[in-house]
Simulated assay, not measured.
Amino acid sequence: MNYEISVYPEQIAIVRLYGELGHHETEKIRAQISKTIMQGHVTTLIWNLAGLQFMDSSGVGLILGRMRELSIVGGQILILNPSSTMQKIFQFSGLAPYMMQADEQAAISHIRGIVHG
């Protein structure tokens, strides 16, 4: 499992996940993202899942938990390019409204439109 976190202007961060996401990796990612949120550096997380082949329930918990943390600061999430299997899981988890099939630049433009529109 590999991941990258990039922070952009306007407190937007993109989390790129690759390979398979299990419990052990989830804890590392959670700690890093939560720290960034709590320090006030991020209010919007874009989860790019285009390179993710598998995610267990801990991955869903990772996204839902960060969503709760962001709600405290009026933040939001966007889930990019989940596989068809992950789309079904997110629909059952109540995350369907946050899914989008797009590249990162389109997602940032979409978020900026929401934030500034």
Rank of each mutant, 00 (worst) to 15 (best):
G65M: 12
A106Q: 15
Q105D: 13
Y8H: 10
I114Y: 06
S93L: 09
V60F: 12
H41I: 12
Y8A: 14
D56P: 01
D103G: 13
I29S: 12
P97Q: 08
E69L: 15
Q32F: 04
I14A: 12
D56C: 06
I89Y: 03
M67Y: 13
L49I: 04
H24S: 15
I108F: 00
F92N: 03
L17S: 03
Q76G: 06
L49A: 06
A13I: 12
E25W: 00
F90N: 04
S58G: 05
S58M: 12
L95N: 06
G117Q: 07
R30Y: 09
I79F: 04
G74Q: 07
V15F: 10
G40L: 10
V15C: 14
L95F: 08
F92P: 00
I79Y: 04
Q91N: 06
P82E: 15
V7W: 05
G74S: 01
V115A: 07
M86A: 08
T26F: 11
S6N: 11
V73K: 04
A102L: 12
E104F: 04
T26N: 11
T44H: 04
N81E: 07
Q53H: 08
H24K: 15
I89P: 00
I89R: 01
P97Y: 08
I77G: 03
S58I: 08
V60W: 01
Q101F: 01
Q105W: 04
I77P: 00
S93I: 08
I46N: 11
I111D: 03
K28N: 14
M99Y: 00
P97H: 06
I29V: 14
I63H: 06
I33W: 13
I89H: 02
A106C: 06
R68L: 13
G65E: 10
L21W: 02
Q32W: 02
E104Q: 07
G22I: 09
Y98H: 10
G40T: 09
K28V: 13
E10N: 10
S6M: 02
F92Q: 06
S71M: 11
Q101D: 00
G22C: 10
I79D: 05
H24M: 15
N81P: 00
I108Y: 01
I5Q: 11
